[in-house]
Simulated assay, not measured.
Amino acid sequence: MREISVDAIAADTAVPVVDVREQDEWDAGHVPHAIHIPMGEIVERLSEVPDGVAVICHSGGRSARVVQYLESQGYTAANVVGGTSAWIAAGHDVAR
Score class of each variant (00 low, 15 high):
residue 89 A to W: 02
residue 52 G to H: 01
residue 72 S to W: 04
residue 92 H to Y: 12
residue 27 D to P: 07
residue 5 S to P: 00
residue 10 A to I: 02
residue 33 H to C: 08
residue 67 V to D: 04
residue 2 R to W: 01
residue 29 G to V: 06
residue 34 A to C: 09
residue 26 W to P: 04
residue 57 C to E: 05
residue 55 V to R: 13
residue 66 V to T: 15
residue 82 G to F: 01
residue 8 A to F: 13
residue 20 V to L: 10
residue 82 G to D: 05
residue 61 G to S: 07
residue 30 H to E: 08
residue 42 I to K: 03
residue 10 A to L: 02
residue 79 N to C: 05
residue 13 T to F: 00
residue 49 V to S: 11
residue 21 R to F: 12
residue 33 H to E: 13
residue 50 P to W: 04
residue 15 V to A: 02
residue 66 V to K: 03
residue 20 V to W: 11
residue 25 E to L: 12
residue 59 S to G: 07
residue 14 A to C: 02
residue 95 A to N: 03
residue 17 V to A: 11
residue 26 W to C: 10
residue 2 R to H: 12
residue 65 R to Q: 15
residue 41 E to H: 07
residue 17 V to Y: 08
residue 74 G to K: 07
residue 73 Q to P: 05
residue 34 A to N: 11
residue 53 V to G: 09
residue 48 E to L: 05
residue 4 I to M: 07
residue 31 V to W: 00
residue 5 S to A: 05
residue 48 E to P: 08
residue 64 A to I: 06
residue 66 V to H: 03
residue 23 Q to D: 15
residue 20 V to N: 12
residue 28 A to V: 06
residue 12 D to L: 09
residue 14 A to P: 02
residue 93 D to H: 07
residue 55 V to Y: 09
residue 95 A to K: 12
residue 21 R to P: 07
residue 14 A to G: 04
residue 14 A to I: 00
residue 1 M to Q: 09
residue 38 P to G: 11
residue 58 H to C: 00
residue 57 C to G: 07
residue 76 T to K: 10
residue 46 L to S: 06
residue 58 H to Y: 13
residue 51 D to F: 02
residue 72 S to I: 00
residue 31 V to N: 06
residue 66 V to N: 05
residue 54 A to M: 06
residue 86 A to V: 06
residue 16 P to S: 05
residue 71 E to I: 07
residue 71 E to R: 08
residue 46 L to W: 10
residue 36 H to N: 12
residue 78 A to M: 11
residue 36 H to V: 00
residue 65 R to D: 12
residue 38 P to D: 09
residue 14 A to W: 03
residue 42 I to Y: 01
residue 3 E to N: 14
residue 29 G to A: 11
residue 33 H to N: 14
residue 44 E to I: 05
residue 36 H to D: 00
residue 67 V to F: 08
residue 17 V to M: 10
residue 26 W to K: 01
residue 40 G to R: 12
residue 82 G to H: 01
residue 5 S to F: 03
residue 45 R to Q: 14
residue 13 T to P: 05
residue 71 E to H: 02
residue 64 A to W: 07
residue 91 G to S: 08
residue 63 S to N: 12
residue 80 V to C: 07
residue 3 E to R: 14
residue 43 V to I: 15
residue 28 A to D: 15
